[in-house]
Design a protein around this nucleic acid. Structure first.
Length: 479
RNA sequence: GUGGUUUUAGCUCAGCUGGUUAGAGCGCCUGAUUGUGGUUCAGGAGGUCGUGGGUUCGAGCCCCAUAUUCCACCCCA
């Protein structure tokens, strides 16, 4: 049999030792900040019931869910259902017999619910909401949790877009009424601290409020058209004002309505100035004014005013559960234009699961995109290596190999990562290995060294070499 | 879901209008140097050209299908 070439599913990647080190570097930095702000870790299963996932991400999101085929005879219930319909001719269902009477025209969307009941998680927020509802009696509110796990989307891969990627989420849920905007302020600080720590200095947090979007829709036409407006103006910088006018015009917006819309979203100036003007324009919308008030509070109470917070009324964010402030973070340096983080307030996510009056707000870091940005900008510290080994023991034969072993243990006992070259190979090969893995020190043991109870220690970065005892070696490396 | 693009040695890529035995650089292996890597020199191994069909006397090159890469749209971290 011909050997088959191994392949990877579309949109997934392997991560070698060096990659994992870099990814952990990012995860560690973010986790540290999360903990500092009082968030505690949570992990949820890779798969959720489709009933949990479906309908939470809009029509588009449902299409991108990875569904898991039921185990066992997964066609059984579908067949039974089909037989039932075939035997009852009066019934006009999704499954219609074809002309031949043998083949059945299956609607794959309708068939899905018969053969699949589980799916891979699409984000971390919905599983979190599910968790909160299921464990409401054990949780002390406000509940602050962070979660760093992979999620899956059946998207077409492209720049910065993968089918399997990691999100790092921090969310706060509490009872409505005590839903302080201080949470939003904290989350903004978290973004700032984490990105600064990682060296992504030139980033931008764009901020908007769903209530403002609702207010705009109300003033322009009616609150029902909020989504239409949001989707259209989200493309403003891509297709321009004319493009947006055309798109909305086709949806039945009058010129007058569009003039009102552009009168609002083209307000220019300082954040404060924009809000003042907006207040005037949205004065007839209670909802809109509430949104402005929230934005105003966040902008004026921000304890670190030099954070790059930009008001952007064209920011919509697709996930349909947001109700208040929404954020999106992008890096201004590098070629990745899509967001490396995002989040917002969702006041009623748990309501769908039968737990009303719980408000939540959260943010997400996109590990893989942060990685891409940092790789491009060369922001990873040089000391991130493929191995943590500090010292490689090199030897020439059985006797010198055995001589290395007690010294190896002493180094490890002293907390220094060390290893001995396991095979009997030429010294050059052993140093090649150390070199390839960027191990900084080689401790060479030959006849002479063994007799004198020392090692020849070579610094592989500088090329310098000295003879020293094991204790001196520990001191040398340990510093 | 729509449109485009890529696939040839371990890696990055050449390969003319279809023509005999498919090339380069890097890497790898061996040696110069039987105890010194990252420099130098000499030699060597390694490819059924993504896969399956088709056209042709003849296909890496043309046609069809399929997978895959990357990119844009949609949407999103």
């Amino acid at each position: 049999m011909a050997a088959q070439k191994p392949t990877l599913p579309k949109g997934t990647r392997d991560f070698g030792p060096a990659d994992v080190q870099k990814r952990k570097h990012i995860l560690n930095a973010i986790e540290k900040v999360f903990k500092k702000y009082g968030f505690m870790p949570l992990e949820t299963p890779t798969m959720e019931n489709l009933s949990t996932l479906e309908g939470k991400y809009g029509e588009e999101g449902d299409k991108l869910l990875f569904r898991i085929l039921d185990s066992g005879d997964y066609l059984k219930s579908l067949k039974e259902h089909n037989d039932k319909i075939l035997s009852d001719e009066s019934q006009d269902a999704t499954f219609a017999p074809s002309v031949s009477g043998k083949l059945i025209d299956l609607d794959s969307k309708a068939a899905t619910k018969f053969i699949s009941e589980k799916g891979l998680r699409y984000d971390l927020t919905v599983p979190f909401a599910r968790y909160v509802v299921m464990h409401r009696n054990e949780i002390t509110f406000p509940f602050k949790r962070y979660q760093m796990q992979p999620v899956w989307r059946a998207d077409r891969p492209q720049k910065g877009r993968y089918r399997e990627f990691w999100q790092c989420d921090a969310d706060v849920v509490g009872v409505v009424g005590s839903d302080s905007l201080l949470n939003e302020l904290d989350l903004i600080q978290i973004y700032d601290e984490a990105f600064t720590k990682l060296g992504i200095i030139n980033y931008e947090i764009r901020i908007n409020n769903r209530k403002v979007l609702a207010g705009i829709a109300e003033v322009v036409k009616s609150i029902d058209v909020m989504n239409n407006i949001a989707v259209a103006i989200d493309k403003l910088d891509k297709i321009g004002e004319d493009g947006v006018r055309k798109e909305l015009g086709e949806q039945g917006f009058s010129d007058e309505e569009l003039n009102t819309l552009f009168g609002i979203i083209t307000i220019k100036g300082e954040n404060k100035e924009i809000l003042n003007q907006l207040k005037d324009k949205l004065k007839s919308s209670h909802e809109g004014l509430k949104g402005i008030e929230e934005l105003e509070f966040i902008l004026t109470s921000n304890p670190k005013p030099n954070i790059n917070l930009t008001l952007d009324f064209s920011l919509a964010r697709g996930l349909s559960y947001y109700t208040g402030c929404i954020f999106e973070v992008t890096s201004n340096d590098g070629t990745l234009k899509s967001s490396i983080g995002g989040g917002g307030r969702y006041d009623n996510l748990t309501g769908i699961f039968g737990l009303p009056n719980v408000s939540g707000v959260g943010i997400s870091f996109g590990l893989d995109r942060i990685y891409d940005v940092m790789e491009e900008l060369k922001l990873f510290p040089a000391q991130l290596r493929a191995t943590s080994t500090q010292v490689l023991f090199c030897h020439f034969d059985e006797a010198t190999l055995l001589y290395c072993l007690p010294a190896l243990k002493l180094l490890r006992d002293a907390g220094i990562a060390a290893e001995v070259f396991p095979d009997n190979k030429k010294l050059g090969k052993q140093l090649d290995y150390a070199n390839a893995l960027q191990i900084p020190f080689a401790a060479i043991a030959g006849e002479t060294e063994m007799q004198q109870q020392v090692f020849t220690v070579k610094n592989l970065i500088t090329g310098e070499q000295q003879t020293c005892t094991i204790q001196t070696l520990i001191g040398l490396v340990g510093q």
